[in-house]
């Protein structure tokens, strides 16, 4: 047993954390600012796109997925995949109801 038992673990430097914090705060400011601009349907698109970027930053750096084994990455992706299945297949029913009968 070595004296640093978790040697395999990648230690992320605080500089990265600070950079991510600043990026997240900037993106928050951006998304709030963007909501004040009239973009019609794109308001939602932009807001969600920024949310996805923010969430990815948190997952990749704060949650160390960027430095994690493939299994962890696969776990995250499979969670997203099933979540998207739930949403898209449920929505598929709701959307196609408007098409009426054959």
């Amino acid at each position: 047993m070595s004296d640093s038992p978790e040697h395999e673990q990648h230690i992320v430097s605080p500089k990265v954390y600070v950079a991510i914090l600043l990026a997240l705060l900037t993106l928050t400011a951006t998304t709030v600012a963007a909501s004040y601009v009239e973009m019609y349907v794109f308001n939602a698109v932009v807001a969600l796109a920024i949310a996805v970027i923010k969430a990815s930053l948190v997952v990749l750096f704060f949650m160390h997925v960027k430095y994690s084994p493939r299994l962890t990455k696969l776990t995250v992706v499979s969670g997203l995949f099933v979540f998207l299945c739930l949403i898209s297949m449920t929505l598929a029913d709701y959307v196609s109801r408007a098409w009426g009968r054959w």
Binding site: D93, S96, R97
Partner: peptide, 21 residues
């Protein structure tokens, strides 16, 4: 198993198209 759940709902008024899928 995750793609077939609506077959429990064929007579509940889901859309014809999604019933087909």
């Amino acid at each position: 198993g995750f793609f077939v759940w609506a077959h429990h709902m064929f007579i509940m008024g889901i859309s014809n198209y999604s019933a087909l899928v």
